[in-house]
Computed example of a mutant assay.
Amino acid sequence: MKILIVGASGATGKFLVDELLSANKEIKIIVRPTANIPDTWLYNEQLHIIRGNISEMKVDEMTEIISDCNAFASCLGHNLTLKGVFGKPQKLVTDAVQLICEAISRKNPEKAVKFVLMNTVGNQNRDIKEQVSIAHKIVIAMVRFFIPPQADNEKAADFLRLMVGQNHPKIEWVVIRPDSLINEYSVTDYRLHPSPISSAIFNPGETSRINVAHFMAQLIMDDDLWGKWKGQMPVIYNK
């Protein structure tokens, strides 16, 4: 198995790379030319580093990159700066998901590949009509209008839900929704739920980035776990 990770230089992506390297998996990562990555990655033969801006890549280039990959993970997100939140590309995550899926379709693998997308608990799973309060809907609508990354996360998940869907012959997916992200440096117990168990706006929980990375890695490596959550949008909380 060879795994492509985008967003690998981010706070969660680095944990995911380390989780998979520790399991002796072969990995390709796409990182910005200016991204800071651990020095140890540079000398790891299991890791192939591709420097480039994914927002500028075309489908032919991506098809070549993924030619030997059979699992995919996105930890892409917007930097929490004025430029990162309000600057271009405002559809960074959506465009990357669509690009990779188009490349997978062109590659036409013999069996379906896995695609794991890190998202946000502020995004509802409309496949199962999650119930939220009117106040929650109003706040999310305001966030969606004023803060572009919210809309980007929603559109990225919707691309997998609606365009790829549940019965695609070549692509299977899971969208992971953490609650308020915190930094911890070892994996702890965590809980998984099909839907939020509390309001992400008015009563948020916590999820450590390393736990998100651990769950993503386990989904990629464990076919039984994958079968349980395939085509769903599980919410992950620290226990």
Score class of each variant (00 low, 15 high):
136 H>G: 05
1 M>Y: 15
210 I>L: 06
209 R>M: 15
207 T>I: 08
151 A>L: 11
15 F>K: 05
232 Q>N: 13
222 D>W: 09
154 E>L: 14
201 I>D: 01
155 K>I: 12
39 D>H: 03
98 Q>C: 11
72 F>H: 02
43 Y>G: 07
165 G>L: 10
186 S>A: 14
24 N>T: 11
84 G>V: 04
47 L>E: 03
68 D>W: 07
99 L>S: 00
212 V>T: 11
149 P>S: 08
50 I>H: 00
197 I>A: 04
216 M>A: 14
182 I>P: 03
21 L>T: 02
11 A>F: 07
79 N>W: 10
143 V>Y: 03
87 G>D: 06
95 D>C: 08
130 E>N: 12
212 V>R: 05
118 M>P: 06
204 P>T: 05
23 A>M: 11
75 C>K: 07
95 D>L: 08
101 C>A: 09
74 S>H: 05
99 L>Y: 01
166 Q>R: 10
31 V>F: 04
200 A>H: 11
1 M>Q: 14
10 G>H: 06
127 D>L: 15
102 E>P: 04
24 N>Q: 15
201 I>M: 13
153 N>F: 13
72 F>S: 04
13 G>Q: 11
48 H>A: 15
8 A>G: 07
140 I>N: 02
156 A>F: 02
33 P>D: 01
100 I>P: 00
202 F>S: 11
206 E>H: 14
35 A>T: 00
101 C>G: 02
106 R>N: 12
32 R>A: 02
131 Q>S: 15
54 I>W: 00
189 D>I: 06
32 R>H: 01
172 E>G: 10
154 E>W: 06
175 V>C: 13
22 S>P: 07
145 F>A: 13
75 C>Y: 08
103 A>D: 04
132 V>K: 06
126 R>W: 11
62 M>Y: 01
104 I>E: 00
228 K>W: 06
72 F>R: 04
29 I>H: 02
18 D>C: 04
45 E>L: 14
203 N>I: 08
99 L>V: 01
184 E>F: 09
52 G>D: 00
14 K>Y: 09
148 P>M: 11
180 S>M: 14
65 I>M: 05
148 P>D: 07
59 V>F: 01
164 V>W: 04
235 V>H: 02
227 G>Q: 12
136 H>S: 11
211 N>R: 05
161 R>E: 15
144 R>Q: 09
34 T>D: 11
122 G>W: 08
178 P>A: 14
88 K>M: 14
59 V>R: 01
133 S>M: 10
190 Y>H: 13
88 K>Y: 14
179 D>F: 04
76 L>Y: 02
70 N>S: 12
17 V>S: 09
146 F>G: 07
92 L>T: 01
88 K>Q: 15
102 E>A: 13
94 T>C: 12
130 E>V: 13
184 E>P: 03
39 D>L: 13
179 D>P: 03
66 I>E: 00
3 I>F: 03
72 F>Q: 06
185 Y>I: 09
225 L>A: 01
55 S>R: 02
207 T>Q: 06
146 F>Q: 10
37 I>P: 00
147 I>C: 09
110 E>V: 05
194 P>L: 13
101 C>R: 05
54 I>V: 03
230 K>T: 15
54 I>N: 00
